[in-house]
Nucleic acid binder design. Structure first.
Lengths: 175, 175
DNA sequence: TCTAGTATCTCGAAAAACAAGATATATGCG
DNA sequence: CGCATATATCTTGTTTTTCGAGATACTAGA
């Protein structure tokens, strides 16, 4: 996955620098717009997550665990406990609840039989990787049909970089 | 706020349509890239939120409530209870906990004195609107310095539209 | 093999959420 | 105005969830 070719042509190794015809004011305006709109995007995502947790009728911990498994992939109960800062005993019963609803499955680790692997089950009517309802994918496709290819390249490039940036920040803040 | 001038020049009222020189394969490739990278961005944001909740040492419900207040602005306990699908009594003690830590404040509603207004307090060292650590803003500014103005316009435009799309989806899923 | 280390699960105690009722304020009707 | 009804928050007793510590099962190295 990470070896995929960079979708944007320009290299981004350094700022453009060339077009600095004193247009700093315009750039500042754009920065502010991106900050504001980025916050709105984040708010929209949080609202959507919130709606999903209500829709699945999961308490905040259970949904957080489920979302974590969707995002990071299968994990052991110990890893979940560490990541969520929960006691291992709490994770045991938490997984019991998720398993009872068919949202996750437990498997024994093939090499170390002390370990258990918890993985989210496939849910029909959802985006496989995220568990999000399919409507979101269709809405985004509709949105993207309004952009030219070169614009889509810029967007894809930004998404990839912004995602990496946030992940790095989260990792840094985690200790 | 919504009356701000559209940062992108083109109107987006209809798909570009002109450049359809049989390059559907390339578009499909871009769609897939955006889907994948968008999921990664969402994952990064979730990781960051997760790290923030750990950093603030709040249990999932308390953090969810705090994030909600940051996003939606001041609310009454009743609105919080409705939005989070919590009993009003649970919200009372939840707010007690947040208030004891100085994260939120209670005020009486000026017109209806039965009501209480809960609002997040200003936190030094954080982005005022979101409560996110300032590092995120700096990292994003650094990222954006690599893009040209016209590219930034495309990004800002997409952010605004995608945020609206997600918010609408969340509202639709909420009933 | 024996011992130490690791991963998960079980059990009693503390914390959080719920449901229902109490208190205080608002609104509308005679 | 006086009273009844409605609304918003807070309190109380019960159920659910989490915690902390220890039990069980497995791994790895001396």
């Amino acid at each position: 996955m990470d070896g995929a070719p960079d979708t944007a042509g320009s290299d981004r190794s350094a700022p453009p620098a060339g077009n600095g015809d004193g247009a700093g004011r315009s750039r500042d305006h754009l920065y502010l717009a991106i900050q504001t709109d980025g916050q709105r995007l984040a708010a929209g995502l949080i609202r959507l997550l919130h709606a999903m947790s209500i829709g699945l009728d999961l308490n905040p911990s259970d949904f957080q665990c489920y979302a974590l498994l969707r995002i990071e992939g299968p994990m052991t109960p110990g890893e979940i406990a560490h990541s969520m800062k929960l006691a291992t005993g709490s994770v045991t019963v938490l997984i019991d609840r998720l398993e009872a609803r068919g949202l996750v499955e437990r498997d024994r680790h093939p090499d170390d039989r002390r370990k258990v692997i918890v993985r989210p089950t496939e849910m029909p009517g959802t985006v496989p990787a995220t568990g999000a309802p399919l409507g979101i994918r269709d809405a985004m496709l509709d949105l993207h049909s309004r952009y030219s290819e070169s614009e889509l390249e810029v967007i894809a490039d930004w998404l990839a970089r912004a995602g990496r940036t946030l992940t790095e920040l989260a990792a840094g803040a985690h200790r």
